[in-house]
């Protein structure tokens, strides 16, 4: 049971990552390969605030979101001038930079040794120490993020994102300064990724840079491509599928290290099969 709760918590965290990444990739059609950087910045900001000042988790998470948003604003100001392949490559570059900062700015991040002893959240004297209560918290935050994503995609703003995805130059001609739209959705998406980062840090109670590599960004992309771009349900389905799959492989009798490697191969194989047979993903309707 404890094990199932553990899996469910991970699925919730990755669902938040999928939902938020979908805003940029699925809705606006911008192939961002830097989501793990914001996940990481959110995790580190929350972890440092918690361990250094002992402030409340929720306050730390909110401050972490603001910090992540500010950094995303700087990165997005550069990225939003690009589209297509340049956007993908540029964003990948930023992930690499953020990762090496997390790794090398030892005085702040403690480098490769990471940050141990991160406290579990508590609110009004109630502690989310047990995994069951932590799962509840994760699900509540997932629901909130889902709601925010729904509001965004159903607004006039969301429709403009779709038009940017379809033909950015055409929608510019109708009076939209698309750079601002791309920048705002990039920042919002990063701030929501920081929520996942905060959850992750206080759930595992330890973080190090290895959780926030380009590989991790690609894993998040796989989640939404598998589940279906621009589909909220798809993001959750994709997260569940890709988190549970390697566990299932383990249960199928493969030793842990083989399962870990099979996991990489399976992601690759799934992506290739999808591109061949269902490029819009399981639940999605759109193609990039």
């Amino acid at each position: 049971m404890e094990y199932l709760i553990h899996i469910a918590i991970l699925v919730s965290i990755y669902s938040i990552l999928g939902l938020s990444l979908n805003l940029v990739v699925g809705e606006a059609g911008l192939l961002s390969v830097t989501h793990a950087a914001f996940y990481g910045i959110g995790a580190y900001a929350t972890a440092l605030l918690l361990t250094e000042s002992g402030m409340n988790f929720f306050l730390a998470m909110l401050i972490g979101m603001v910090i992540t948003g500010a950094i995303a604003l700087l990165i997005g100001a550069v990225l939003s001038r690009f589209d297509g392949d340049f956007y993908a490559l540029g964003s990948l570059g930023f992930n690499v930079i953020v990762f090496s900062i997390l790794l090398n700015w030892q005085s702040l991040t403690n480098g490769p040794l990471g940050i141990p002893g991160i406290a579990r959240p508590s609110l009004f004297g109630f502690s989310f120490e047990s995994n069951t209560s932590f799962l509840t918290l994760s699900l509540v935050l997932l629901a909130l993020v889902w709601g925010i994503c729904t509001l965004i995609t159903r607004s006039s703003f969301g429709r403009v994102l779709h038009a940017i995805r379809e033909d950015e130059q055409a929608i510019q001609v109708f009076g939209y300064t698309t750079t601002y739209y791309k920048l705002v959705i990039f920042v919002l998406s990063a701030m929501l990724a920081a929520v996942a980062g905060a959850l992750f840090a206080s759930y595992i109670t330890f973080i190090d840079p290895s959780s926030f590599t380009v590989n991790e960004s690609i894993f998040m992309l796989s989640i939404i491509i598998l589940g279906g771009l621009a589909s909220h349900r798809g993001a959750v389905l994709g997260a569940a599928f890709l988190i549970i799959l390697p566990e299932a492989l383990r249960f199928a009798g493969f030793p842990t290290d083989v399962a870990a490697q099979m996991r990489q191969v399976t992601y690759g194989a799934i992506l290739i099969l999808l591109m061949l047979y269902r490029p819009q993903g399981l639940l999605g309707e759109y193609r990039l």
Binding site: R159, A163, E166, D167, A170, E285
Partner: peptide
């Protein structure tokens, strides 16, 4: 060359 927002 007709440029609509095809998937909308």
């Amino acid at each position: 060359s007709v440029r609509l927002f095809e998937q909308m």
